[in-house]
């Protein structure tokens, strides 16, 4: 008796799985493991004092707090932009559509310098704001603006295809059932977009947490005022305090992972309600 080889309807599982694991290991897992190994050179007390130092805590707070706030702004602004781009026909629509991608393509340093020039105390926008007593450049507010700038395409590009695909018959059905325009948006359209909105939010947030290039130009980088965590890592590296640098990196990594994991679960939950299969 010879065993009949098990046949799969989709061939190539072994090859693709092997490649996936090799690639993930080389590109992501091994470098990240190195981070932990380097950090382990510190005793726990040293590690703890590094990450709980007031300057570190402040930098982490700035990075995560402002990234979260910027992602919230981008969630709403991005939704409005998508709505305008998808639902209305107006002259220049394609140009606007292309402009959305600029923060993707622009070297972040260029974006940072442009924003700084604009919002510096003598800049086009900085001057009138300064007259109102609002200082943007070299303050956390500037960091916040830079994070909004680089995060917006993530929300727009994830939500746009979903809204394009959304059947207009759903809105017609809601209207025939007596729903007002607001009720239709609130009860029919937004819930259908929720999974995409969450993905866009998570991407914009992750990008803003890790953003370096555009932020450091406008931030002013004053310790305990407008210093972001990635910059603090660079400073520690330039002081040859590698283990301290990786300790901060590890904290960022764990935090980011937890936040993205939670967002992922929420998204999964939102999606499973609509796409549940029997």
């Amino acid at each position: 008796m010879t065993a009949v080889a098990q046949r799969r309807s989709l061939p190539g599982f072994g090859l693709t799985m092997g490649l996936t694991i090799t690639w993930l290991s080389l590109m992501i897992l091994i470098p990240l493991a190195g981070l932990f190994v380097k950090t382990a050179e510190l005793s726990f007390a040293e590690f703890w004092s590094t990450v709980t130092a007031p300057r570190t805590l402040h930098a982490l707070k700035i990075s995560f707090g402002l990234a979260f706030a910027a992602a919230c702004v981008n969630l709403i602004a991005g939704l409005l932009i998508v709505w305008a781009l998808v639902r209305y026909r107006f002259p220049g629509r394609r140009i606007f559509d292309a402009i959305v991608d600029i923060p993707f393509a622009l070297p972040t340093a260029v974006a940072g310098i442009a924003l700084t020039t604009l919002f510096a105390q003598k800049g086009w926008l900085g001057a009138p704001l300064a007259a109102l007593g609002i200082k943007v450049a070299f303050t956390p507010l500037g960091i916040f603006l830079a994070m909004i700038f680089i995060g917006i395409p993530f929300v727009v590009r994830t939500v746009q295809p979903v809204l394009l695909d959304l059947d207009t018959e759903l809105e017609e059905a809601a209207e025939c059932l007596g729903a007002s325009r607001w009720q239709t948006i609130w009860r029919v359209i937004l819930p259908s977009l929720t999974p995409a909105l969450l993905t866009g939010f998570a991407l914009a947030f992750a990008r803003a947490v890790g953003e370096y290039g555009s932020v450091i130009f406008i931030a002013g980088n004053l310790p305990n005022v407008s210093e972001i965590a990635p910059l603090l890592i660079v400073i520690r590296l330039s002081e040859f305090r590698y283990a301290d640098a990786t300790a901060i990196a590890v904290v960022m990594l764990v935090f980011s992972f937890l936040i993205i994991f939670v967002l992922n679960r929420i998204q999964h939950w939102a999606q499973s309600r609509s796409l549940a299969t029997a």
């Binding site: 209207e175 025939c176 059932l177 729903a179 609509s274």
Partner: peptide, 28 residues
């Protein structure tokens, strides 16, 4: 359409995917 009190059934159902059957029927 919202004020006409007309029931409309679409060829491709147009059910709200994120609502269960009960909520779909209760929508109106």
């Amino acid at each position: 359409a919202a004020e006409r009190h007309v029931g409309f059934v679409f060829q491709h159902y147009a059910l709200f995917r994120h609502m269960n059957v009960f909520e779909n029927v209760a929508f109106g």
